[in-house]
């Protein structure tokens, strides 16, 4: 994915499907947007305490897990006092609920659609 090229050797923030936030230097990536981070840390957010940074070191993150990659402005990032920040963790992406009954009820609510497809010659 050519659009990740500009992030190599930059300090980046990764947001993952489960809501985790990981910062690190992008060492590399591939066409499936799998990403290798060096000097990486997880930033754990909570409403009770300041942001906790957990060192992870060299990390390979699967592309499927990544929802967003952001380039960090290092001066801005260092100016932030993480210990003073209170915030909910980023919400995870909900896996799709299973269909079946739900979907059937939806269709019954809209008989117009069923009718329309029946008149097709």
């Amino acid at each position: 994915m050519s659009s990740l090229q500009g992030y190599v050797d930059r300090r980046v923030l990764l947001i993952l499907q489960d809501g985790r936030a990981i910062v690190g230097v992008m060492a590399g990536f591939d066409q499936k947007s799998n990403v290798v981070l060096s000097d990486s840390k997880e930033r754990v957010y909570s409403m009770e305490d300041g942001v906790e940074e957990i060192p992870l070191g060299l990390y390979l993150v699967k592309g499927d897990m990544i929802i967003l990659i952001g380039e960090l402005d290092e001066t801005l990032d260092q100016a932030v006092d993480l210990a003073s920040i209170r915030a909910e963790p980023i919400p995870p992406i909900r896996p799709f609920p299973s269909l079946a009954v739900n979907e059937l009820l939806v269709l019954l609510d809209f008989p117009y659609i069923i009718f329309q497809t029946r008149v097709i010659p």
Partner: peptide
């Protein structure tokens, strides 16, 4: 959502 305060540009899946 202060998590992205220092992010100026991003790539979204």
């Amino acid at each position: 959502h202060p998590h992205m305060m220092a992010v100026k540009n991003c790539f979204i899946r």
